[in-house]
């Protein structure tokens, strides 16, 4: 019974000691400690959130960069392709033009040659006719010195002429 009977003195001192401890600790220990732990936890939490956000942002930026790079690459390819096509076209055009031009020149040359040929032939014809006239003149002069022969010729010519 002795053991389970609280003694008034100890009760009194325990009340005093405990309340003293409670008040002092509340003021000088628990409030600052709990507040600072709370603050630290909040700052850690916000830091983690910020890190998460930064990671997302970085991911987004990386994606964007990649997208940009991809687009740039595609554009480059396109430009190269176009350039190649253009080159081909230009070469082709040049070839075609050259061909046409060549053909034209050839045609012109042919024409020239033909006309030159014709002119030369005319010249030759003229020369031949002049020559033949000169020959004929000389032959005629020589021939027409003989009267008998003139008559014979005339008669031959008359014979040749047919009255139809």
């Amino acid at each position: 019974m002795e053991l389970v009977t609280p003694s008034i003195g100890l009760v009194f001192w325990t009340v005093i000691a405990f309340l003293f401890l409670l008040l002092l600790l509340k003021k000088f220990a628990w409030s600052p400690i709990l507040n600072l732990i709370h603050d630290r936890e909040r700052s850690i939490e916000s830091a983690l959130t910020a890190a998460e956000n930064a990671k997302d942002e970085l991911k987004r930026l990386t994606n964007e960069n990649e997208q940009l790079l991809k687009e740039a690459r595609a554009e480059r390819d396109l430009i190269l392709k176009e350039a190649r096509e253009l080159k081909e076209q230009i070469v082709n055009d040049a070839k075609k033009t050259a061909q046409v031009e060549g053909a034209k020149m050839i045609a012109k040359a042919k024409q020239e040659i033909n006309s030159q040929k014709a002119a030369a032939l005319d010249e030759v014809k003229n020369q031949v006719s002049h020559l033949s006239l000169a020959i004929a003149e000389r032959v005629l002069r020589k021939e027409f010195s003989d009267k008998a022969k003139q008559e014979e010729l005339v008669s031959d010519l008359i014979k040749e002429v047919k009255l139809n």
């Binding site: 000691a17 002092l24 600790l25 000088f28 220990a29 600052p32 400690i33």
Partner: peptide
Amino acid sequence: VAALFIAVFIILVMFIGVAKTY
């Protein structure tokens, strides 16, 4: 009672010291 006071003192020193560190 004396042990109680010693314990109270130890607790006060401990936690007020810790609060200072905080």
